[in-house]
Design a protein around this nucleic acid. Structure first.
Lengths: 220, 220
DNA sequence: TAGATTGTTAATCGATTAACAATC
DNA sequence: TAGATTGTTAATCGATTAACAATC
């Protein structure tokens, strides 16, 4: 982690993809790989691979290429996947439950330690190995337990209220599934948005205009 | 839909966001808006707003601005949200169920007409107003019913098999929640990927390197 | 008409690609 | 040593922003 002054978001958003492909190669017991070969597999240019990796350090060796297992580990570290950031989930609806059950948080740098929902019906339900608590417990829980980030799987209209509480408690990292603009209210937050409906509208557009869209940014 | 030769993906991916903000303004009964005002609300530049909109036509009026309701409708049309593309869902696990229950497909240009799962346990379950069918019925169903697109909420390892069937049946539009690279196997497909774990890894990176990430592309 | 704001062209900025000297 | 492939600089390409003439 030496050179990482102001890495562009374009590069950052490609890192998980590198990590995935390198993990696969590693599982297939591939020892080394050249930027050209990796680029081929990933459908990008060799230049991009080398430029991207060199944002973080010179992981390769001239005339040889990159060690797959080493590079995989480097990127894992750069991404911070060895962390166990404590996360809480707000909202135990369909989406919240899917997120809780479906994701392998431990491999992604997180640990899900609690879930809250404002509906009495949900309270007491089990998701993975955590129990849904009433939202009235939220603040108390956060004061008693260190919480790094909140995953917001609640409707847009509910976000502001919860966000204000969380922010006041010092939680400033969010995985946000709503269309509420968190950064707009609190600018010193780190927010990753998942806008499923935007994504689906984009699919709709592209189905409509199939013949002539550019290829750029297709992936991801 | 006149000028739309090769609109860049950057522009396309911004359209849903315009649509959202304009819908809101419209609900607040705002009649007209200037590019400057809209840009302010959306946290972008006025130039970008005007450039983006002018990819599709001159919707504004000099000295006046844009009619909110008209512009909203224009974008709705550009996105094709008035369509009712017939969609089927493959996979009734946590994620599939969340997708089926959580999304307001009709407002997004789609209609969910069936759901399939390869597990006997799932068969017969009700999601929204559709019943989960065994995956063995898939091909038969697709031959008897027109299907425009498939939403893939199944594990990566299951995709290839299902994809081959769907593609053979002429289905070439996919909303893909797995890491399987559909475009790689069939290049004449339209694919929108939702890579939740990539997204979460990006959050992890940014939590690690909070102080010094660029702002570009933060939104979306 | 005067003021406002668009549509559009030109300038800038950043990201991607190409090229090649360094070096394993 | 000769061949391969990196790290890095320079060139290109595309996207964003600024500027302004057209016009409502």
């Amino acid at each position: 982690m030496s050179k990482n002054d102001s890495i562009s978001m374009s590069v950052i958003r490609r890192l998980p993809r590198y990590y995935r492909f390198l993990s696969e190669l590693n599982e297939e017991n591939v020892d080394r790989i050249s930027s050209t070969k990796l680029a081929q597999i990933m459908n990008v240019t060799a230049s991009q691979v080398r430029q991207d990796l060199n944002c973080f350090g010179g992981f390769g060796q001239q005339g040889y290429g990159y060690s797959v297992s080493q590079l995989k580990e480097e990127i894992k570290n750069i991404l911070g996947l060895n962390n166990h950031y404590k996360a809480i989930l707000i909202g135990a609806g369909n989406l919240g439950r899917a997120v809780a059950m479906h994701m392998n948080f431990n491999k992604l740098g997180f640990e899900l330690i609690a879930c809250f929902d404002n509906s009495e019906k949900k309270t007491g339900e089990k998701l993975a190995d955590i129990t849904v608590q009433p939202e009235t417990e939220l603040e108390d829980f956060c004061r008693k337990n260190h919480v790094d980030t909140a995953f917001l799987c609640i409707p847009r209209v509910c976000v502001e209220n919860v966000l204000d509480k969380l922010y006041a408690l010092g939680i400033k990292n969010y995985w946000n599934f709503s269309h509420y603009d968190i950064n707009d209210r609190y600018s010193d937050t780190v927010v990753e948005n998942v806008h499923l409906s935007d994504n689906l509208m984009t699919l709709c557009y592209r189905m409509n205009n199939n013949t002539k869209t550019t290829r750029a940014q297709d992936k991801s």
